[in-house]
């Protein structure tokens, strides 16, 4: 029983992390049709900013967390301004290639200006403690991660429903030109999406740093690839889809690891991706792909 609860928590925290990152990808994609693979480098930048702030200013973890969040939001906004604004309205492939280009440039900047080897930054490790409740031993980090994800999703939903900018972002996902015809500045909506995406990347960076205690140039790339798969499963461009896909992927990964006999452990990824393929055969656009509203003419 304890084992089941422990693994369930494991699944939940994996899922939460994927969901956070997937949401960051989905919110940008839903509005401007850009698959932002440079999202991983924003996460890595969060890690590096932590190293910088702790060397120059203070090692206080709470201050560092705020610093990481500010840094990732600014990084995300800068990428939009410098790289993605110029290709706005270009087709999907152009966006994808640009995002890969930005991602490669940033990884190499981290290599040149930082170090190819992991740089230790252990200020967040204290989040990861083993709690013993009765017979169950769980990691506090997993609980924080799950709670933060739920709270972040809740706040995001409130923002999207209650504020004019949030409504404009939802409307822009349906018909961006019509939003502009209502007088809402395109730059504001897109910058808003990138800011939120950066904030989510910052949260992910904090949790990744708490688990690893070090930063390296490629630390964001794999999580973003996984989050990309989560988006595809859930339905690209759908925010609930990103969250659902993230949690499903987390749960499947853990379930496969637990259920597969020890000697087949190496096949875990293969099994997970076979399941993903089956989902996509069943629903090629993802489980919650947004309905294509065509209106009654045009």
């Amino acid at each position: 029983m304890d084992y089941v609860i422990q693994q369930a928590l494991n699944a939940l925290s994996f899922g939460a992390e994927y969901a956070l990152i997937a949401l960051g990808l989905a919110i940008v994609f839903s509005i401007m049709g850009l698959v932002n693979f440079a999202h991983g480098e924003v996460i890595a930048f969060g890690g590096y900013s932590m190293v910088m702030i702790s060397t120059v200013l203070t090692g206080n973890p709470w201050f560092l967390m705020i610093g990481v969040l500010v840094a990732t939001v600014l990084a995300s906004l800068t990428l939009e301004r410098v790289a993605f604004r110029t290709i706005r309205g270009a087709d999907l492939t152009t966006g994808l290639l640009t995002a890969f280009g930005v991602s490669i440039i940033l990884q190499n900047l981290f290599l040149l200006l930082g170090s190819p080897r992991p740089i230790p930054a252990t200020q967040f490790i204290f989040l990861d403690q083993t709690l013993t409740i009765g017979a169950i031993r769980i990691s506090s980090l997993q609980i924080y991660e799950a709670i933060t994800t739920v709270v972040a999703i809740g706040l995001l939903l409130t923002f999207l429903r209650k504020t004019t900018l949030g409504m404009a972002m939802r409307a822009a996902a349906l018909d961006f030109e019509m939003v502009r015809l209502c007088g809402v500045r395109a730059n504001r909506v897109i910058a808003g999406a990138f800011a939120i995406s950066g904030l989510l990347a910052g949260l992910a960076a904090i949790f990744i740093m708490a688990r690893r205690g070090s930063v390296d140039p490629h630390m964001g790339f794999n999580p973003v690839l996984t989050a990309f798969v989560a988006c595809v499963i859930g339905g690209f461009g759908s925010l609930p889809g990103a969250v659902l896909g993230g949690f499903l992927l987390g749960i499947t990964e853990v379930a496969v690891l637990v259920l597969l006999p020890q000697e087949y452990g190496g096949l875990a990824q293969a099994v997970v991706f076979t399941l993903v393929a089956l989902v996509l055969i069943w629903r090629p656009d993802g489980i919650l792909s947004p309905a294509q509203e065509k209106g009654d003419k045009v």
Partner: peptide, 10 residues
């Protein structure tokens, strides 16, 4: 506009 273009899910 032509085709009304209301925001369907809002």
């Amino acid at each position: 506009p032509e085709g009304r273009r209301v925001f369907a899910t809002l």
